[in-house]
Design a protein around this nucleic acid. Structure first.
Lengths: 367, 367
DNA sequence: TTGTATGCGTTATCAA
DNA sequence: TTGATAACGCATACAA
């Protein structure tokens, strides 16, 4: 295995200049089909791979995609990343993970590095949170950027991928109403997050449509964690039986887990005494008892879709993995202008926590 | 924000040559403390960040660590990555994720890129599997490499991080024996994996120590999945009651989940009729009912430890995040030679699936 | 259609 | 202790 074969070696072997080799490497149209073919074969023969650093330096398109991830503690981040990895695997790009550990300092550092170094062709910001302003700045500087974020109002004009939280919540509560419930509580997530506000709105909308007035006593605040859910649920279960709700819509699956614990503790049966719907559909929700009826967020698909969106924005096209030999050349940059805001569908997943399902509501569609 | 400030700008501003700036950037000892200080301040003032591509090209140490990950479908991979990210966050390195999607082609491609491109300072191979041979080759070529792998016998001399599967399994089965069980079944994982062989050995060892002869009828093969566990468990539950085991040691947590399902289906109560111990301690295991007693693998710590090991191997030291100004210079490369094989402790986590715990065995130590 | 020459930002090798 | 200067491997005008 020749330790390092460069573009020069290829050029020499092919009897051309390295400029020509560079041209076929970058899919320039102006090169003789015959020579291209010849060069291509030599490239394959030598299993030559261009040096990223060099092409990056020389101003060429980099093959690196930066991914900003919040500390991997959020449950769903790995799923998003899985989707991202799947999409990237189809291309010749690689992933650079910038994981932000809450510290403001770190963020600006990493971002500065991205800014300065021309090494990344694009950026995917997953719940950028505090670093949103850096991301925005990068976007202004022309860096192709896509964000996945449900915490804040997505900045205008920055491509964004997410779900419709309002309709998801609406679907969840509609499900409960169709099962006959009218006393429905809601344990919310941190209301500074846009998604929590939207889920709350969806909850209210479903109730109002059914002619039900939301009862403030049944709207409690959680924090997306099991602990938060447990604490809030205890308050509900401490209510005298006649003042208790018959169903709860939790703003997240972990919140629902906490509710289940609190119910066990209080001798409240689920779904016997109280029906429960969550929001997320984490893997655990299929195993927990009772199985959790919940709104599925397509995390993997979100990651994949976001990457596809990002690729469509890169001026050079994704370059599938076996590109040099078997791809059509020439006019290939007809990337259709994608929408800058992609809403993925949520889906109701029915399990045991609402009791026997009565009818075909298992795949009720988000409106 | 000056769009790109280079080493030349710093040199000009400091009234020195870029060679000198480069020296302080790379912590060379031979530079006047006064000049160093001056340059350092200007660097900070300009928030200058060296261009990775350029330094990579010029032969300097890259600040990129390659991480080979199998498709993110394995449950524990995200946890390992979390640990990796934590360790990397302490340094000025960044992470490049190479996710291998089973396809042999992809692997050699990615590896070749790593090999050719001098961009990555080191490599962490997580369960490299088929690409193990490439990894070995890279190691021979002098690339600093650490692997986390429980599938095969770790190649000699390649630093390795993992757990002691034998003693973990031993601890699990000892726990069951101490609870009074003597009819203990084992649903194994794919036996081509080293870890599965070791867990099986630990199972046998514990039984033999207690004077129990393993019953071949109670040793079944699973495949680490819930489905596999369910299928195997059904066979066990199909046995006439007097020939059934009273306890099961599952080779993985998902396997245990499958056993729980099969038990529900067969009307077998856990822990009433059968005690159950798993291996992994995935997050789900705390929520599933009954709560799963299991052997905890310290995934996050594995990732962190592996990175620390890798950093200790890089000839230049990890360079903490605020290095240029507040770090001691000079003789800094006294990286103590770390052991090349790091075994992390597993731990017994007691939950409900084995019945009421009787005594202080909750934190029984691996031998 | 192809080749030549120059530059990208940094490190390393010399001298000074 | 410092400063020129030559690589590093590739992309891109500009010529031919």
């Amino acid at each position: 295995m020749a330790d390092k074969v460069t573009i020069n070696d290829i050029a020499r072997l092919a009897g051309v200049s390295k400029a020509t080799v560079s041209r076929v490497l970058n899919r320039k149209p102006d090169v003789d089909p015959a020579t291209r073919e010849r060069i291509l074969h030599i490239i394959e023969e030598q299993s030559f791979v261009p040096n990223m650093a060099a092409s990056g330096l020389a101003g060429g398109q980099s093959r690196l995609i930066g991914v900003l991830v919040p500390s991997l503690t959020w449950h769903f981040i790995p799923y998003i990343i899985r989707g991202v990895a799947e999409a990237v695997a189809q291309t010749s790009y690689d992933l650079v993970l910038y994981s932000m550990n809450d510290l403001e300092q770190d963020k600006s550092d990493a971002l500065a590095r991205i800014l300065t170094t021309k090494l990344t062709a694009g950026l995917l910001g997953i719940v950028p949170g505090q670093s949103a302003k850096y991301v925005t700045r990068l976007h202004k500087h022309g860096m192709p950027i896509v964000i996945i974020d449900d915490q804040i109002q997505p900045p205008a004009h920055i491509p964004w991928v997410g779900v419709d939280n309002l309709s998801g919540a609406y679907t969840a509560v509609r499900h409960l109403i169709r099962l006959g419930h009218r006393r429905i509580a809601h344990i919310r997530g941190p209301m500074r997050n846009l998604c929590c506000q939207e889920r709350h709105q969806g909850y209210c909308k479903a109730l109002q449509e059914a002619g039900i007035t939301p009862n403030p006593e049944w709207i409690l605040d959680g924090d997306f964690t099991s602990e938060g859910g447990e604490i809030a649920a205890r308050k509900l279960f401490a209510l005298p039986p006649e003042k208790r709700p018959t169903a709860i819509f939790a703003s997240s699956d972990p919140t629902a887990y906490g509710i289940i614990s609190a119910a066990e503790e209080a001798g409240v049966r689920i779904p016997g005494d109280i029906a429960l719907v969550g929001f997320d559909d984490l893997e655990t929700s299929a195993y927990i008892r009772p199985g959790l009826t919940t709104i599925r967020q397509p995390f993997v698909e979100m990651g994949r879709k976001a990457m596809e969106l990002l690729f469509s924005m890169l001026n050079t096209q994704p370059l599938s993995k076996q590109p040099l030999l078997h791809q059509p050349f020439g006019a290939a940059n007809q990337t259709e202008s994608e929408p800058v805001r992609v809403y993925l569908d949520t889906r109701l997943v029915v399990r045991a926590s609402c009791g026997a399902s009565q009818g075909p509501q298992s795949f009720a569609q988000a409106v």
